[in-house]
Write a protein that binds this DNA or RNA. Sequence first.
DNA 1: TCGATAAGTTAGAGCGCTCCAACTCTAGAC
DNA 2: GTCTAGAGTTGGAGCGCTCTAACTTATCGA
Lengths: 338, 338
Amino acid sequence: MSSTGRIHAPTLEDVAQIAGVSRALVSLVMRDSPRVSIESRRRVTDAATQLGYRPNLMARNLASRKTMTIGVLLNDLHNPWFAEVTDGIHASAERHGYQLILASGRRSPRLESRALDTFLASRVDGIIVAGCRLPASRLDAVGAEVSLVSVGRAFSTLGIGSVTTDDADGARMAVEHLYDLGHRRIAHIDGGKGAGASPRRTGYLRTMSRLGLKENAQVISGDFTEEAGAHGAERLLRGALLPTAIFTANDLSAVGAIDVVERAGLVVPDDISVLGFDNTSLAALNHIGLTTIDQPRREMGAAAATMLINTLNDRGELTDVVMSPSLVVRRTTGHARA
Amino acid sequence: MSSTGRIHAPTLEDVAQIAGVSRALVSLVMRDSPRVSIESRRRVTDAATQLGYRPNLMARNLASRKTMTIGVLLNDLHNPWFAEVTDGIHASAERHGYQLILASGRRSPRLESRALDTFLASRVDGIIVAGCRLPASRLDAVGAEVSLVSVGRAFSTLGIGSVTTDDADGARMAVEHLYDLGHRRIAHIDGGKGAGASPRRTGYLRTMSRLGLKENAQVISGDFTEEAGAHGAERLLRGALLPTAIFTANDLSAVGAIDVVERAGLVVPDDISVLGFDNTSLAALNHIGLTTIDQPRREMGAAAATMLINTLNDRGELTDVVMSPSLVVRRTTGHARA
DNA sequence: TCGATAAGTTAGAGCGCTCCAACTCTAGAC
DNA sequence: GTCTAGAGTTGGAGCGCTCTAACTTATCGA
């Protein structure tokens, strides 16, 4: 009863009938066309409100062959990074009159892929993927059908735009900061196949080499989650020679690592320094006070949306934008013990 | 060039032509109808893959008059509570073959309202609102057009389903826990107009009264954010008589409050105990170790989706489901000082 | 041999909207 | 008084699909 009993929603035709005008005129009024007389406009809007008329988006999009919506694929709703990037996307999209439909990939390539299929089937005008784990080939295929911008991970392929932070440079800053504090045994818990994980790992390794710490470099595999950070720290603690500092691939992992370190009776940063990446709201919590590498998350989201929308309106091209990271020192890093 | 240059997407008609069958047959194959011969099915799927055909959802939904999608309105992407509820919704929806489209209200009733309009215009089959701040009247109006279930906040109105935790009882548990630890001056930083804020506040006040602590009750207004928790704590610290315990309306506020308390040089829980609400992943971070009231967030999301889907298929009615909260003791609460 | 039944397929009428070309008026130019 | 331009309005085709009813062909019992 409840759902089946609902009355058929009024259509444009119904409004036209009541207002005593043609369907086309109602359509014009609904789209705020300037070439409608005041009188007609009034009659139509009156009829529309009387009926509680609401244009059917599917019909409209089908007929007009565009949707004015952007599909946004978020890799992990649990990571605040995505909320922050989404804020930026939202702001830019809204300014340009675009709708957003969000989908969560829940950290699973299978679900991510399915979400993209839904976007394509819905004929969104463009797609933004954030922290996407899908292989370049898949994204390429999607990019061939609709404009696509990736946030947080660059794709060398043409036809896909990207907005990233210079991850390698961020990693350099991280290692150098620790080096300056006197640390020499600096370990890295990486992000596995996650977005940005590879350049951060490379940046770490290169900087360690440059500083003459090649021998001390140690990469533990992770995956950008708190659990991975915890597991990584456990492995490090079991090792023969403890590192004096841990650089993790993101903030979430850093928090996991800190937990384990402290649970083992060690003090951060007195015994071990921990440095994250992203500068999410998590890191900023005073209670955590994580030293980390800042990414301009909101700006990245906004830049991605703006680039996409410009492309859609032939006012620009898809390019690769690289933003600058910066070091944010808080309380989880300190001088290495003498 | 980039977007305008894209080739027109193949349609069902194109597939039919190549396969040498009628449009209707292609449609049947696309919907996995059993009454299609093996041979025809093969020819159609071959033609479809050859063309890279993908059914146009808008056209399909328009023609079939249903969308198999549920609109999910999340109040605040920054609060992990929503990610966890969404996980539950996702799981249930997937099991029943429904799509999800998410929208973020960004804690603004105006944006929430607009998102609902989009849902209605998209003719979603049903809507789930999580932590929604909209007035009952608005939700009522929406509920009249499409089945609607609210998570985290009950609406006494008929025609709207809800899944909530017994917030008042949770507040009772919180206060009693603190009472048992010897606390008498227990303050509450509330959630303002947020979902669940009112029953939590009431539960707090009633329990304080029942325990003979009516005089000591003190409610500071907040809004479920970290900042509100921080501001509330600041106000409390400026007061003449410090509370020995703070019960906040949610975890995010608790974290904000802890920050301020510790920054003031006080120790949690030695000087002041802090107790949150929700038991989000934030509270579970070992580094924070927040004592809090648990809500079965995933289960709540799943229950909401299941109820909604059952209603859509005339297998059930919209009702008000109340789940039981439970106390989770961690490290931010301790005995009151003698 | 003749329906009757089932299995597979199809034409055609929509779904609710947009878009285009064409139409009707009115007002001003000459 | 005719012509033109512009403002306002309209009918009708079409977007890509589903759905119904009807059609064709093969199968089978009587």
